[in-house]
Amino acid sequence: MKNCIATYALTQKGAETARKIAKLLQADCYALQRYATKSDIPFDSLKDIVADKFPRYESHVFVAASGIVVRLIAPYLKSKDIDPAVVVVDQNGEFAISLVSGHLGGANELARLLGDKIGAVPVITTATDCSGVPSIDLMARDQGLVIGAIGAIKHINSAMLDGEKVSVYDPDGYLNLTGLNEYFVVIDSVAKLPEFRCGIVVDWQVHDLPERVLTLYPRCLSLGVGCRRGASADEILKLVRSVVVENGLAMDSIFSVGSIDAKKDEVGLLEAAAILGLEPEFFSADELDEIKVANPSDMVMKHMGVAGVCEAAAIKLAGATQILVPKTKSMRVTAAIARKI
């Protein structure tokens, strides 16, 4: 499966509309067996095909009644930050209803796109869109920020819909608030957050925050790891998590992990990176040797030909000039963190 959008149809007219949409959006077209053509993927049961395909596509366009779609997809919905976009289109292609994941999933955008492509009227019911106020989840996505507790978004939206300003603590200016003074007020300390109905904190450091505060994490921290041969993923993760917690850092702000290329087949390191959801990067000894580390090691120089691995790798990944958290050691693992400026 190479396409990221799927269309589905239950009637002959619906199949014609779904086929048209699929062609315009480069989508896969699923049609009920008796209405399918050679360009379609036939199915006998929409219930069965949804059960199989729902998590496999980023977006779904159902040319069907919205009630049918709601009942079919309900068992597979998990959270607004991970559910795929779902749009419902009537068989004549007159309306495109954004049904699920309007913001983060992109259903609102997809409904509008269908309006442009087939002349359907986009039907969008998210309150922020209807009221013309900013969508903080879309703002976060556009700035590459990780949303902390997604449930806190409702407090932000509710305040803006009521005409109240939302406080924002963003010491490094990751969230672009240009032209949005009507909705947000910038504060210079988290201590001022309780003065407002709700707030937003954009930071790579962890804070003790009031309940109605949404945390957004910039992906700006790089993790450098060194390890002895055979070090387990558990030992690596234990040290990494300890370093993060003890230094008050946000795990969600780590964007990459790196080491020396002699470790590119180290099973424990690869497993640890996968668990953290990070794609590991590896550097040659010559590349790491270009970096002046804060804590050089004669032992590492003897075995690897460089003064240090974890600090140099972290700095290299971040494009930084100095280390944020210097080398920390366990029995067989070292870890360091740098910050991308």
Rank of each mutant, 00 (worst) to 15 (best):
288 L>H: 03
28 D>I: 08
274 A>L: 15
95 F>L: 15
271 E>M: 14
62 F>Y: 11
186 V>I: 09
175 L>Y: 07
36 A>P: 12
49 I>V: 15
194 P>D: 09
268 G>D: 02
233 A>K: 06
96 A>R: 02
200 I>C: 06
171 P>K: 02
299 M>R: 14
82 I>L: 06
43 F>K: 06
136 I>M: 13
42 P>N: 13
117 K>H: 14
1 M>R: 15
56 R>S: 14
274 A>D: 05
47 K>H: 10
286 D>G: 10
152 A>C: 12
252 D>E: 11
322 Q>W: 04
76 Y>D: 06
77 L>R: 02
161 L>M: 08
230 G>M: 12
122 P>L: 11
4 C>S: 14
225 V>A: 03
280 P>A: 09
97 I>R: 00
201 V>T: 07
123 V>E: 04
93 G>D: 00
122 P>N: 08
82 I>Y: 02
7 T>R: 03
232 S>G: 06
29 C>K: 14
55 P>D: 14
8 Y>R: 08
214 L>Q: 01
221 L>C: 01
264 K>Q: 14
60 H>C: 07
14 G>C: 03
191 A>G: 12
12 Q>W: 13
185 V>H: 06
197 R>C: 11
126 T>Q: 07
238 K>A: 11
189 S>D: 10
325 V>A: 05
273 A>D: 00
46 L>P: 03
284 S>V: 05
336 A>H: 01
100 V>H: 01
31 A>S: 14
16 E>G: 08
37 T>E: 07
130 C>R: 15
139 M>N: 12
292 K>T: 12
131 S>T: 11
323 I>V: 13
156 I>K: 02
88 V>W: 02
274 A>Y: 01
35 Y>C: 13
124 I>A: 04
80 K>H: 03
228 R>G: 08
295 N>C: 14
270 L>R: 01
96 A>G: 08
40 D>N: 15
24 L>S: 14
12 Q>P: 09
132 G>C: 09
36 A>H: 12
102 G>R: 00
116 D>A: 14
